[in-house]
Design a protein around this nucleic acid. Sequence first.
DNA 1: CCGCCGCGCGTTAGCGCAAACATCGAGGCC
DNA 2: GGCCTCGATGTTTGCGCTAACGCGCGGCGG
Lengths: 359, 359
Amino acid sequence: MTVPPAPSPAGGAGAAVPDAPGAPAARPRAAVMEDVAARAGVSAMTVSRVLNSPEKVRPETRARVLAAMRELDYRPNSAARVLVTGRSRVLGVVSFDTTLYGPASTLYGIERAARRAEHTVSIASLSSLTRRSVQDGVERLRAQSVEGIVVIVPHRSAAEGLRGLPPDFPAVVVGAGDDLPVPVAAVDHRAGAARVTRHLLSLGHATVHHVAGPGDWIDASERVAGWRAVLEAAGRPVPEPLPGDWSARSGYEQGRLLAADPEVTAVFAANDPMALGLLRALREAGRRVPEEVSVAGFDDVPEAPFFAPPLTSVRQPFGEVGRHAFQLLMDRIAGVQGAPRRTVEPELVVRESTAARPG
Amino acid sequence: MTVPPAPSPAGGAGAAVPDAPGAPAARPRAAVMEDVAARAGVSAMTVSRVLNSPEKVRPETRARVLAAMRELDYRPNSAARVLVTGRSRVLGVVSFDTTLYGPASTLYGIERAARRAEHTVSIASLSSLTRRSVQDGVERLRAQSVEGIVVIVPHRSAAEGLRGLPPDFPAVVVGAGDDLPVPVAAVDHRAGAARVTRHLLSLGHATVHHVAGPGDWIDASERVAGWRAVLEAAGRPVPEPLPGDWSARSGYEQGRLLAADPEVTAVFAANDPMALGLLRALREAGRRVPEEVSVAGFDDVPEAPFFAPPLTSVRQPFGEVGRHAFQLLMDRIAGVQGAPRRTVEPELVVRESTAARPG
DNA sequence: CCGCCGCGCGTTAGCGCAAACATCGAGGCC
DNA sequence: GGCCTCGATGTTTGCGCTAACGCGCGGCGG
């Protein structure tokens, strides 16, 4: 590819043409704006304009410049541009474990939204859930000159870690508490939990047991709150929620306890992996689902329809949350004040793991 | 030019002290090196040295400078630094769907390794698997001045999309074919598939059926190859592999076909979600696992031990692969030539979904 | 007592780009 | 037809930082 090496004897200048015909060439320095300008016979400023406000350049000139860019395989130096404009078009995402379905999906949604808006995403994952660790993650990203940050850490530590942030630094939180001075994009976990609990009650169950997520995760406590509210409103006994850690294993362990209690006819697990563990424990204990015990989860992971039995769950629109988070962040960067909250409703998906109460 | 607009009547200096006591303060411009220098009573160069080669600055001076930094909440402008040094300490990761367990885990491994080496990670996900799309992802990252790129796209399109890359651009591929001119970090899928196939044969099965991943995914074809090789070496019939798309649904659909065939006593699914679908199909068809049919998966997702029954699978050390990818990339950036290949062996994890052949 | 060395710090220059202003020619207007 | 406008391009400047070199001063050998 690429046209002749020498731009011109007159325009001499020529810094670096990619593939010199002669020798093996010791890494020809990448073309810069000046090189393009020389080749197109214009000034560097015109090249810059072609990039940033093409309508201000006569079509003919523009074409010459674009051709020169192509020929030299020119790519703008983002560092220089950021230095002078102060805008990096990069945003940071702080997350805990991007291996979990929820965070991974949200991250994915953010990234897609960012891509559409011609931004890129840098990530910082945390090795622990402490105030310090969150601060550190934010710091790592700020050091990279990101324009703003999305924090996907639905954990108390996020709120704490964010307190120190300068109030004008653009940050958005996904799914965290309501006492924060930053915009929040969230799923209404409380409504989702309420919905699934009501569903179970409507099937005739006297009450619903709950295997909760870790208490310091905000999602987890919201789900507990939604579940509890429905039980209380219905005047049903509220069993002590059993603590889990989101893992299938913890669901399994709590499931063994629950399976031993013949009173238990309906269990709501705070996420799908725990529900899966629960299903295994019940099966091992010889308690049939849903004939003897109904089980519901939360998240609606893609595999939920294939559990044994297919799992009733609450579908979280992670992609949408990601988009909202991105949009809130862009608004914030654009100078919109305040701490708005965009909440989306999750959807109950009823499958075969829940059924009428036995007897 | 330069030098303080108002260095000091006293120690006054102050370009931008974060919290001016007076008015609401219209966003006090962030402190720059010159501000720190003024406050510490040194030149900007000394401030720079404190950051980059502290041993060249007398401890006393260094302490003054550090104090000034803290007082001004100074943070170096990365764009300026990148502009002048040419090094960004950012690397890019191109991935397809970071929602899938494998890519997500690998990304996570890379990010952890990068963090330890004080690098950050930018991501670019692809909306489709085509040569163009991969090129585009790479391009987006290059435009951000990343120092190198890891491509987690174990798909034919990755190889194609990478061909156009300048040979000296640092790039590393995770788990893709061996005809690439770039370093590769991979799991030995072939060995893993062979291992699980041998395991099934050793249980007395006459042959092993296979639900494969999409043919254009390199992992998928490697697994087919490993499975096929073992069957052929053992002189067993090689059934036509059934095509899946990695999803539980596709495993389910192929499982319905397999369940209808009484000859089928052992099935190896190319990943765990498909194995899960398979399990459901067999269950629905009344074929018991493992008594009548043995099922094995690949990946060993954290939930696999809680499937019904707990799934025999092949554990992929994604974290290790991520670390290798990062290391290869760093070597490459440091100038190491060649296209080395770091392969890790996956491990067979036997659980209850596989058992001796019936009868 | 002179010259040399090297430590510790300062000065200069320039990375690549875009904002702000300058320039220049072609019309339009009365 | 002089003057003003306006569109298209050029020139200057500086974003914040670090590489490269310069300089003064104290110590040390002869």
